[in-house]
């Protein structure tokens, strides 16, 4: 599997650390909404299909990437920095990588 890091280009999956489901929303730090906290820590959508997930390019630039990847085919449809100010518009289409 190859992930196209917006900084580093297409790199093998071995350079990345999976940080899991990117749909999870962390409540505000002071939130007392325990259901929301529980959902954030334990509950997963785990779709069979496109999955919004977070990967860290731990063997490269160490940026966290928001990746949309199909869990049935492993096909990646978009990769962007999680952190907005690096340019969240930076979307790399599948065709750009090999």
């Amino acid at each position: 599997m190859l992930i196209t890091c917006p900084y580093c280009g297409p790199r093998d999956v071995i350079e990345f650390t999976y940080q899991g489901d990117g749909n999870r929303e962390r409540p505000e730090p002071a939130s007392q909404n325990f259901e929301a906290w529980n959902a954030y820590v334990y509950d997963r959508l785990n779709p069979a299909g496109d999955h919004n997930e977070v990967w860290q390019h731990s063997g490269g630039c160490r940026a966290h990437l928001r990746v949309v990847r199909n869990t049935l085919t492993h096909e990646i449809s978009s990769v962007a920095f999680v952190r907005g100010h690096h340019g969240s518009a930076s979307r790399h289409k599948a065709e750009d990588k090999s």
């Binding site: 999976y18 997930e53 990847r69 492993h74």
Partner: peptide, 11 residues
């Protein structure tokens, strides 16, 4: 990583 594909990779 999440997968339903019954196929893994080389690493």
């Amino acid at each position: 990583y999440n997968s339903y594909a019954q196929r893994g990779n080389l690493p």
